[in-house]
């Protein structure tokens, strides 16, 4: 292979690799990006059933029910107006409690409820995720 051709081949390969990476990434982004919802975002609208999403808001006071097995819980997430029932099985984060902020990672069910695989609770002020800071602010102002 001549030097010039080799350089061209390498450059083309590199471009092909970059394009391939971009295409692969973009196609995966379509399915795998987990969007962030507040209860109000899904009220009366078609649910993104079966997709990995995040649901954020406050744990409604008086809604927390602990199941007999000691590790399953059910509660309601509210933004002050709309409410989504959530089920979760696992160890809840230390700061998870009624009336406090929560972000649930999981999927909506066809009946409008939410099954969480993971819960993120509001840590102290210094370590609050910005997504949460935004959503919580919204729900707090709606509550007043």
């Amino acid at each position: 292979m001549k030097a010039k051709h080799q350089r061209l081949t390498l450059a083309l390969l590199a471009v092909a690799a970059i394009l391939g990476a971009a295409l692969l990434a973009l196609s995966a982004l379509k399915d795998q990006a987990a969007f962030f919802y507040a209860p109000g975002d899904v009220a009366g609208r078609p649910l993104p059933v079966g997709k990995a999403v995040r649901l954020g808001g406050m744990v409604e006071k008086g809604s927390l029910v602990r199941a007999q097995d000691g590790v399953s819980i059910a509660f309601k997430v509210t933004d002050g107006k709309d409410v989504v029932p959530v089920r979760f099985r696992g160890v809840t984060p230390d700061l998870f409690r009624e009336g406090s902020g929560v972000v649930a990672e999981g999927q909506f069910q066809p009946d409008g409820s939410f099954t969480a695989d993971n819960l993120l609770a509001k840590h102290d002020e210094r370590y609050m995720p910005p997504q949460m800071a935004g959503k919580m602010h919204k729900s707090e102002s709606l509550e007043q």
Binding site: L24, A25, A28, F35
Partner: peptide, 17 residues
């Protein structure tokens, strides 16, 4: 986020790519 959409990319994306 800069365009006003909140989403997160987790393990499933990287496992597929």
């Amino acid at each position: 986020q800069a365009m006003g959409v909140q989403l997160s990319i987790g393990a499933p994306f990287f496992e597929k790519t």
